[in-house]
Design a protein around this nucleic acid. Structure first.
Length: 229
DNA sequence: CTTGTGGAATTGGTTCGCTC
DNA sequence: GAGCGAACCAATTCCACAAG
């Protein structure tokens, strides 16, 4: 079976890139667009199994894009809302969105919603089991029990620390930007000089090192983000 | 048994000084 | 300038206990 074809239309470069990376890691065939006009063009010219559409776009907003897409096809659309108010959600759904998700959102939730829609439309068949456990070079994370082990030594992490480590470990060798991690882990916008993420990272790093994990597996990419290998 | 209250513990965030 | 870490503060959660 060919991989499902997805189109991501979002003018937020960092979010668009990171979503694309996450989706490609899940073996989806992903195309990116960064403004409404080009996004619409791409959406009507090619066939996609699902479109992720930002509500607020330059040139042509997401609602207008959705309106035109609906005139041409029944391609499922998940709208990424900026404030997620009831009025905004109703507007999106009334134009024909299949689902709406307010920003900032949990990427796991978005992936599950994508899976649910693709299952309904028959693009993917069996329910895709959300990944619950990761094993990598001695490090073991279990999402259900929120437990972390390194070489069978338990590491106690707070919920935020666990989410942060899970995000990094589930995207090995990918540089995850600070802006993306702020949005997905701390669920807010990244502000220069906000040290919260650095602090969480520092605490996670300390606990991993105490458990014996080599320091260089959790790298800081100066001015860019963080990377787990 | 349920609800309210107060203190302790935990967690997340900020500040500041240091290093690279 | 960017990142790290210690110390501190504030908010939240947990839990035991008392009152209704």
């Amino acid at each position: 079976m060919d991989p499902a074809k997805l189109l991501v239309i979002d003018d937020d470069q960092s979010l668009n890139n990171q979503l694309t990376t996450l989706l490609r890691n899940r073996s989806f065939d992903v195309q990116q667009q960064f403004d409404g006009e080009q996004g619409l063009l791409c959406a009507v010219q090619k066939k996609f199994d699902l479109i992720l559409l930002d509500a607020m776009l330059p040139d042509r907003d997401g609602f207008s894009v959705l309106h035109h897409v609906r005139n041409n096809s029944n391609t499922p659309v998940i709208m990424l809302m900026n404030d997620g108010t009831e009025a905004e959600r109703i507007k999106g759904l009334s134009i024909g969105a299949d689902d709406c998700l307010p920003k900032p959102f949990n990427p796991e939730e978005l992936m599950l919603r994508i899976d649910a829609i693709l299952r309904r439309t028959g693009v993917i068949q069996s329910p895709v089991k959300s990944q619950l456990e990761i094993h990598t070079n001695g490090l073991k994370l279990n999402k259900r029990t929120q437990s972390t082990y390194y070489s069978d030594r338990e590491i106690t992490l707070t919920p935020t620390q666990f989410k942060l480590l899970w995000m990094l470990v589930s995207n090995p060798n990918e540089i995850l930007s600070k802006a993306f991690l702020y949005k997905t882990i701390l669920e807010r916008e990244f502000i220069l000089y906000d040290r919260s993420l650095d602090m969480h990272m520092s605490r996670v790093r300390k606990k991993l090192e105490q458990a014996g994990m080599p320091k260089d597996r959790l790298k800081t990419i100066h001015g860019t983000g963080y990377c787990f290998s």
